[in-house]
């Protein structure tokens, strides 16, 4: 079970959270093409490596936040608030989670 650090509540067990999938995907307006819409809705990087993803502390504070995690090891590299820019994963390497 993952140990996830909610930026608002601190480290908690994975079962308190719900997964929100890939982060930093902006929802376009209805004016975009069908390709762009399908891309927003369905296409994913599915990164093997450091992935920016969303979590929600569903059984805690209820807040969404972002995390960087290496999907090859499940090691978290960073946790950051919604709206923040993706931190540089390499710099954070040493800090771990």
């Amino acid at each position: 079970m993952l140990l996830i650090e909610c930026p608002y509540c601190g480290p908690r067990a994975e079962i308190e959270f719900s997964y929100g999938g890939e982060a930093h995907i902006d929802r376009p307006g209805p004016e975009v093409s069908e390709e762009e819409w399908a891309s927003f809705l369905y296409l994913r990087e599915n990164t093997k490596g450091v992935l920016a993803e969303r979590w929600r502390h569903a059984h805690g504070c209820g807040r969404f936040f972002n995390a960087l995690r290496d999907t090859r090891t499940d090691e978290f590299k960073a946790f950051y608030e919604m709206g923040e820019k993706r931190p540089d994963a390499e710099k954070k390497e040493g800090e771990g989670a």
Partner: peptide, 13 residues
């Protein structure tokens, strides 16, 4: 398990 992972393992829960 709910999250993206290539580790071929998940949580025991």
């Amino acid at each position: 398990d709910s999250y993206v992972s290539y580790t071929q393992r998940g949580g025991m829960h």
